[in-house]
């Protein structure tokens, strides 16, 4: 592991799960046609850590997130979230039920995937409704969360009335409504313009500092990884393997245009290009 800058001591955070992948290999398909998506990947995200997974196309980033989310099972190796291994639980997404009764894993995608038939407030309420939070309580909680992502004034609107960036903030509020200790993000800002993305980085960082959940953030944007991550994990493509890991010891809040970020991004980009160029021959 290359240390680019001294890492500040990890503060004691609220109970957020540890994510651990031990020698995980994942094949898609069977027999001779099987494609190796991930090969012998070992990776850990500490409790409350912000880990960015970076890689070109075909590095198995999304496969990896699906394994952590429990949507899929590794071919070999073990995926552990918190203290439990998904192998020991019947329902693939039913593991890791936390003390409050909510699911401990929340997930955001490039598409906000808001339910178009529900108002913004009802979207945020849904995870609480599903775990039986009383109506009055969840209404108040949803409004608080919407205020937190600065969308308190839009609670009665429907998703199609909002811009892409606003929808992504609603999705963030809805994920927070799960009271999750682990947030998995699959290129969540990939479809947004640079100005909006920049502001959402600030927003996400502020929420993460405030709430202390563990984040596994998948991106193909090197600067984004350097801007957000405590650690950057570079994956190779076809098959996906861990190529290199960097700790990012820059103080927060950070700015994407700071020289420190630029210098880390340059180092990572060089390594990424080296990795990508292997496939041209």
């Amino acid at each position: 592991m290359t240390i680019l800058a001294p890492r500040p001591p990890v503060e004691a955070r609220r109970a957020a799960p540890v994510v651990d992948l031990a020698s995980v290999t994942k094949l898609h398909g069977h027999g001779p046609d099987a494609v190796v998506a991930l090969q012998d990947v070992s990776l850990t995200a500490a409790s409350g850590e912000f880990v960015c997974l970076l890689g070109a196309s075909g590095c198995g980033k999304s496969t990896l997130l699906n394994l952590v989310a429990g949507f899929d099972q590794p071919t070999t190796g073990v995926v552990t979230v918190g203290m439990q291994s998904p192998d020991h639980v019947d329902s693939p997404t039913g593991r890791g039920t936390d003390l409050a009764g909510g699911s401990t894993t929340a997930m955001l995608f490039q598409d906000a995937n808001l339910f178009p038939w529900l108002t913004i407030a009802a979207n945020v309420e849904l995870p609480m409704r599903l775990r039986g939070v009383p109506k009055r309580e969840r209404e108040a909680a949803a409004l608080d969360l919407l205020e937190r992502v600065r969308l308190g004034g839009f609670s009665t609107k429907h998703p199609h009335e909002l811009s892409g960036g606003m929808r992504q903030r609603v999705a963030l509020a809805r994920a927070l409504a799960q009271d999750a200790g682990l947030l998995l993000m699959d290129e969540p800002f990939g479809a947004l313009d640079a100005i909006t993305r920049d502001l959402l980085h600030d927003e996400l960082e502020a929420l993460w500092i405030e709430r202390g959940f563990t984040v596994v953030f998948v991106t193909h944007n090197v600067r984004e990884a350097a801007r957000l991550g405590d650690r950057i994990v570079l994956l190779t493509s076809r098959p996906g393997r861990v190529a290199e890991t960097w700790s990012v010891g820059i103080e927060r809040p950070r700015r994407i245009d700071s020289p420190e970020i630029a210098s880390i991004a340059a180092t990572v980009t060089d390594r990424l290009r080296m990795e990508v160029s292997r496939h041209g021959h």
Binding site: F71, T93, N113, F115, L126, Q178
Partner: peptide, 22 residues
């Protein structure tokens, strides 16, 4: 859309709840 079904599952909707809410 499969994305909505996936979002529903992540939010904790399964079985009948997934049918009814998503």
């Amino acid at each position: 859309p499969p994305g909505l079904v996936r979002a529903g599952r992540i939010l904790g909707a399964r079985g009948i709840a997934l049918d009814r809410h998503v």
